[in-house]
């Protein structure tokens, strides 16, 4: 009877929503770009058959061509192969950085937001400190103290991202804790831990996911910046930032700068697009 009519009504709204929530083409394209990047990092040998480390000196500084898509560098190494083989290191280190940020920052935010009181005040000051030191400077100091390696650059980037995650997580937890459905769960006999783990955390983690994706893109940029300044693994490693850095010494061969730069831009742009889409749909 009445129930039947409302069910029918909602079918229409539900399907309408599903249609309007269709994945936009630019987001699909972004996923495609990231898929390529993922495959490059997993199976570099399949995509770039030329040797990324030992070049052919006779073929040095060749412009982009069918044989060398991104041209060759001063030692005659195929730049495309170097970019593809540098993907794994560039992507993994960004992942490490984001993981550190999410886990440490998320934990700080969760504790601060759910405990409140003095714990919150103390943690808020800790986060303020991390926020107050310019993150790139902080990363430089940390990496210089741990040693110039890509892994350390990743850790440094992760630490400098902790503050952002902690802030967002804390705000989300506080917002969700005030939600009516959380009080409803308490009224239905939900314990503190139950409410925190089953209601607050899942709701708060939606924004955290979008932020994590965004931060992944930023981390690629920060780690590339550290590599550019020479604070990552030294050559013959071929991290994207390092490739740009060594390419800048050859102004007559601009592809050495712009080919790896384009790869960075395409990757980060795709990541940003997906993060924006996640925020819209969350």
């Amino acid at each position: 009877m009445t129930a039947a009519t409302t069910v029918v009504g909602s079918w229409r709204t539900a399907s309408a929503r599903a249609w309007s929530g269709a994945v936009p083409p630019t987001v699909l394209l972004s996923f495609a770009v990231l898929l390529v990047v993922l495959l490059w990092s997993l199976l570099p040998g399949v995509f770039a058959t030329q040797d990324p480390v030992n070049g052919v000196p006779a073929d040095k500084l060749l412009g982009p061509s069918a044989a060398h898509w991104f041209g060759t560098d001063h030692l005659g190494r195929d730049l495309f192969a170097r970019v593809v083989h540098g993907t794994a290191s560039s992507v993994t280190s960004a992942l490490v950085a984001v993981t550190i940020g999410v886990v440490v920052g998320g934990a700080i935010g969760l504790v601060a937001g759910s405990a409140g009181g003095w714990t919150d005040v103390v943690l808020a000051r800790v986060v303020d400190v991390l926020l107050a030191i310019p993150s790139f400077l902080l990363a430089v100091v940390i990496v210089s103290s741990l040693g110039f390696e890509t892994v350390n650059a990743a850790i440094a980037t992760g630490v400098s991202a902790v503050a952002v995650f902690a802030r967002v997580m804390r705000a989300e937890v506080i917002k969700t804790r005030r939600a009516v459905f959380v009080e409803a769960s308490v009224l239905q006999g939900g314990s503190r831990a139950h409410v925190l783990l089953r209601h607050v955390l899942p709701n708060a983690s939606r924004s955290l996911l979008a932020l994590a994706v965004l931060q992944f893109g930023l981390s690629i940029l920060v780690i590339a910046g550290l590599a550019f300044l020479g604070y990552g693994d030294p050559p013959p490693a071929s991290d994207w930032g390092l490739l740009v850095s060594s390419g800048k010494d050859y102004p007559t061969a601009p592809w050495l700068v712009y080919a790896p730069a384009l790869v960075v831009v395409a990757t980060v742009l795709s990541v940003n697009r997906i993060s924006r889409w996640l925020r819209r749909t969350a």
């Binding site: 590339a224 550019f228 930032g241 730069a261 960075v264 980060v268």
Partner: peptide, 13 residues
Amino acid sequence: SLFLSVPAFVVGL
């Protein structure tokens, strides 16, 4: 979005 995706050193170069 584009401005946020380009490394500062690339813009500089």
